[in-house]
Simulated scan of single mutants.
Amino acid sequence: MNLTREILKEHGSKQAHKIARYASSSPLTFKLLIDTYLTGPYRVTQRASWPISIVGEAHPKLIRPHLKKLLDFMVRDDVHDAVKRNTMRVLQFVEIPKRNHAQVIDICFELLQSKREAVAIKCFAMTVLSRVIDDKPELQRELKIILEDQLPYSTAAFKSRATKLIKRLPGV
Rank of each mutant, 00 (worst) to 15 (best):
C123P: 00
K122W: 04
T127W: 02
E95G: 06
D78Q: 05
I107E: 00
L62Y: 09
G40L: 09
K84T: 10
F93R: 07
D135A: 13
R116L: 12
C108P: 04
R131F: 03
M88P: 00
Q92F: 01
I63E: 10
T39S: 15
S53K: 05
I107M: 00
S130I: 06
A58W: 09
R43N: 09
T87D: 05
L129C: 08
L112R: 02
I96Q: 03
L91V: 00
I121L: 10
A82Y: 14
P60T: 11
G40V: 03
R47E: 03
G56R: 02
V75N: 03
H59Q: 14
L112H: 01
Q103C: 06
A102P: 01
Q113V: 03
R43F: 07
I107G: 00
V44I: 15
Y42H: 13
I96N: 03
M88G: 05
V79T: 14
V55R: 07
P41L: 05
V128W: 10
N100D: 13
H101I: 10
R131G: 08
L139K: 09
L129W: 07
I54Y: 14
A118S: 11
I52H: 10
A125S: 14
G56H: 02
R85G: 03
K61H: 12
R85N: 12
P97L: 10
L112F: 02
H59W: 08
S130A: 15
W50G: 02
M126I: 12
S49Q: 05
V44F: 08
F124D: 12
F124R: 06
I52G: 10
Q46D: 06
K69W: 11
C108N: 06
P60L: 13
R131L: 06
R131P: 00
E138H: 09
Q46V: 04
I105E: 05
N86E: 15
V44M: 08
A125R: 11
C123K: 05
K68E: 15
R43V: 12
L71E: 09
I52R: 09
A125T: 09
F93V: 01
N86L: 07
L111S: 03
I52K: 09
L71Y: 08
V132A: 10
T45Q: 06
P97V: 04
V132Y: 07
A120G: 02
E110N: 14
T39L: 11
R47C: 01
K136M: 13
E117L: 10
K68R: 12
A48C: 05
E57Y: 07
Q103L: 15
A102R: 14
A58L: 14
R99E: 15
